[in-house]
Amino acid sequence: MTNTINRKTFLRGVGAAGAAFALGRGPALAQARQQITYMFAGPTVLPAFAPHMIAKHKGYFAAEGIEPRFVTGQGGADVATQVGAGNAEAGGGIGDTTMVVRPNGVPVRAVALLGGGGLHQLFIREDSGITDPRNLRGKTIGVQSFQDTSYYALLGTLARLGLTRNDVTIQAAGPAGIVQLLVNGTAQAMVGVFDFALAAEAGGVRLRRFSLRDYFPSMAQTVIVSDTSIAQRPQLVRAIVRPLLKALGEIIADPTKAIDDYLAAVPENAGRREQMAAAIRAYAQYVYAGQAQLGAFNPDELRTLQEFYLREGIIRRAVPLDELYTNAFVS
């Protein structure tokens, strides 16, 4: 049974890839669609980019007259820098990205927030018996790196829990190492994305999830464009934002259907259907949902976050809030 599905999905994938190839190459079929580059902060096959993939697969970008090419950068700041330098029309960051790069003169703003939850969550091993994050004192917590939003979110969370970074042991271990730390029991907890948690659970560890947002304004992914694009090509910005929000809304409304759409869009992941399905359900429930106005930023959250970053020395200089984002393209 599984086999049949896999083969069918695979064949469909091949067909889709062939069609995409034909679309990409055949000028007769693609009637003068504008090619744009959209840069991700991680590998394009991560389920975190489901809205982008579904929007492209279902032709939502095409309907706006654009043809996005997805490429991978070296993290949020790199994406912002490339967008600021004009090497990409748009890119993906997290809530704090513009806050970090803007003081260094990178002229970019966030034009959409893809969800009301936080991308990063706190996961604690069930067998540690810890049911309240306050009891993490003395425990080891893994993060991907010390230069990452997840680490900053952990610092903010600890502060709200009445703990300091000296009350716990924080280990930076990289994407593979963080899963390993949890599985072999070196760490009792981690702050990271669902993808890591699912990998750890696949390794036989049961995890308990805690939303960082109870303690700290951890945010979802954002869409970043340059000041120049906002000023000179607002219709292009709209053409990028609108399809993403449409796909986002669909995932929230019907995650089960979104799983099929996603696997059709990213046939490389067809072999890991279970894991992808779990990831998309988790994203839909905990990250994407919860916004009054789909895609809109809450300036209060940004202010709180910026104040915390300034206090912790993560940023040296705060810029006016309206330089960080605009909600002009989400209505």
């Binding site: 070296q74 993290g75 949020g76 700041a77 790199d78 912002a80 820098t81 600021g84 970090v100 790069v101 260094n104 990178v106 790196s145 010390f146 230069q147 990452d148 930076a172 271990a173 990289g174 190492g177 940023i315």
Partner: peptide, 21 residues
């Protein structure tokens, strides 16, 4: 550059991670 929290490689990644050219 691969990881860690000490050394000039860390500072390089840190600077790059903040677009601090």
């Amino acid at each position: 550059l691969v990881g860690g929290s000490v050394g000039l490689g860390y500072l390089l990644a840190f600077g790059q991670g903040q677009a601090n050219t």
